[in-house]
Amino acid sequence: MTRKLDRGRLVIATHNAGKLREISALLAPYGVDCVSAEELGLPEPEETGTTFVENALLKARAAAQAAGLPALADDSGLSVTALGGRPGVYTADWAERQWFEGEPGRDWYMAMGKVEGLLCQQGPEVDRSCWFSCTLAIAWPEGDEAVYEGRVDGTFSWPPRGTMGFGYDPVFVPNGRSEAFAQIAPEEKHAISHRADAFRKLVAEQFSD
């Protein structure tokens, strides 16, 4: 039987302000007090996993052990059909600037442009279908763990549109919609996103009576 979260303090193992906002909003109705790894001054562990599950567990375990509190980590990314599922687990890596690309850090417009460039190389009829994956991992300091996975399918659209969201949101149009994720209000996105899909599964198991 999966261990249940107490309605108390939970470390969100991220230094990404956008992810923290989304996760905090999704957990707010359940009386969970979210604090980020960044606020606690916890270092970001190196993501050496080759799957979303491995990386999510790696981050959750590190935060739980360092803080002595239960921790929730998210590992998510964009997979493009015509690119064989890339960037996938390396989604954030594609945004990292190389030494010749400017100051160290992440440039998401550059990352989106890399995907578009590779798609354009395959011609105007290229399959632009893609999907966002999200894995949520909870780890307790005592060693208990739980994992929940979500997905949303859509189309890679160019040029980028919208100012809401983060990461690849400006180029992802979910199936059944005409707007990119970055054009959809946060509360509406929360209902349809890959993260929302994973959270529905988490909530069903963690907060059901």
Rank of each mutant, 00 (worst) to 15 (best):
R61G: 02
W108G: 06
E179W: 05
A82N: 11
G105V: 07
E47I: 02
E44G: 05
L202G: 00
Y90G: 10
A95Y: 06
W108N: 13
V35Y: 01
V173P: 00
W99D: 13
S178N: 09
V203F: 13
R3T: 13
G150C: 09
G113T: 09
D169Q: 05
R9I: 11
F199T: 02
P45T: 10
E38C: 05
K59W: 05
M1K: 08
Q121C: 14
R3L: 14
S79K: 03
R86A: 15
E205P: 02
Y168T: 05
W108I: 08
I23N: 00
L5P: 04
L78D: 03
W108R: 10
R21W: 04
A196I: 07
G49S: 09
T135L: 02
R161A: 14
S76C: 14
G41T: 09
L57S: 01
Q183G: 09
P70S: 06
P70N: 09
S157F: 13
E188W: 10
A37I: 04
A67P: 05
S157D: 11
T155S: 12
S79R: 05
R21I: 12
R3F: 12
E116H: 15
K189V: 02
A191P: 10
T48K: 13
Q206K: 08
R61Y: 08
A139L: 03
C130Q: 04
R128C: 06
M1E: 12
S157H: 15
E145T: 14
D169H: 05
E38Q: 12
L20C: 04
V35L: 03
G68I: 14
E101D: 10
K59T: 04
A82H: 14
L72Q: 01
A37H: 02
N175G: 13
G49H: 10
E142Q: 15
L20E: 02
E187R: 12
P104C: 13
E205W: 03
A139G: 13
Q65D: 11
L10I: 04
H190P: 03
W158P: 02
T81M: 08
N16F: 12
F132I: 07
E103T: 11
H194T: 09
A196M: 04
R21E: 05
W94H: 08
E116A: 15
P43G: 08
T91Y: 03
G8K: 15
W99Y: 14
A67W: 03
V115S: 05
G77A: 06
R177L: 14
D127H: 13
Y168I: 04
P170L: 09
D6F: 05
P160I: 07
M110W: 04
K19D: 00
S76T: 14
P174L: 07
I192S: 03
G41E: 04
